[in-house]
């Protein structure tokens, strides 16, 4: 059954632009080209110190992306398991998944990061970046779990019944029929989570992981150019998230295409 309740979805990712928006001045274009313009202006007219600042950041950008991709990968796996658990009729599996989601959602991400990081440190010696990835993935996996659950539930029961009637078992029906369709519903919120996660990776800078923010802080504490450094960091994050939201909106558009006649 289609759930007719209106969902007000205030994602914490960047706004995903609508590709059908054909006006010359879209919010995305103003933000993106405005940001590039300001960066260009700073680099040309205030070369010192902005050139030094931006040259200091690429290593951090690479680290930010590594943490983001690895964490989202882990979050997707955990999210799929948690989402399947939440709709499972198996009481143990269902309770375990629900508890995981409740607990994770009730604790601030920063606190979880510290907690997992130091708890993990007691048990095994893992590199800082790995600990950070596990913590981020664990946390975002819970949010992903709800996304997967909603995506799976959005697929009509008839699809599963048709699969079962052909001789597929439940997990085959899930794998071959339900998930490939749910993916289209899941993709937009996953995209939002991806961008939100990229921004939240700035939190790992407190865990001795040299992401964009930490590289910036190192630069600022040596040069005392706090304002200039954080200006550049904000601009760099903005460019990255704007590019990502554009890519996501295009992918989404293409996936939706075949659904229309």
């Amino acid at each position: 059954m289609i759930d007719k309740r209106i969902v007000i979805d205030v994602g914490d990712g960047a706004a995903i632009p609508d590709p059908r928006d054909k006006g010359l001045f879209t919010a995305w274009r103003i933000s993106f080209f405005g940001t590039l313009g300001i960066i260009a202006y700073l680099l040309i007219f205030k070369t010192d110190p902005y050139l030094d600042i931006i040259k200091f950041l690429p290593d951090g950008i690479v680290v930010t992306f590594k943490v983001t991709f690895a964490s989202i990968g882990l979050a997707l796996v955990l999210g799929l398991i948690a989402g399947l658990g939440r709709i499972s009729k198996n009481t143990f599996f269902n309770l375990a998944a629900s508890t995981y989601i409740e607990v994770v959602r009730g604790i601030p991400l920063l606190v979880q990061l510290f907690y997992i990081y130091f708890a993990l440190g007691h048990l095994v010696r893992v590199p800082d970046m790995v600990a950070a990835i596990i913590a981020m993935g664990f946390c975002y996996g819970a949010y992903m779990g709800e996304v997967f659950r909603a995506g799976i539930l959005s697929i009509d029961d008839g699809q599963t019944e048709a699969s079962l009637s052909l001789g597929f078992n439940r997990s085959q029906a899930m794998r071959y029929v339900v998930l490939p369709q749910a993916w289209r519903t899941i993709l937009p919120p996953v995209g939002n989570e991806f961008i939100a996660l990229l921004k939240d990776t700035s939190l790992v800078s407190i865990l001795a992981v040299s992401d964009i923010l930490r590289r910036g802080r190192e630069f600022a504490s040596e040069s005392f150019l706090y304002f200039e450094t954080y200006t550049m960091i904000a601009l760099v994050y903005l460019v990255i998230t704007l590019i990502l939201s554009k890519i996501l909106s295009n992918v989404e558009h293409r996936l939706n295409h075949y659904e229309r006649r």
Partner: peptide
């Protein structure tokens, strides 16, 4: 049951073709 179901075809009121 999966082997038995493979021998019993079913046609639904709402078709239920795989949309993807």
């Amino acid at each position: 049951i999966n082997l038995i179901r493979a021998e019993v075809g079913m046609v639904f009121q709402s078709f239920n073709l795989f949309r993807h």
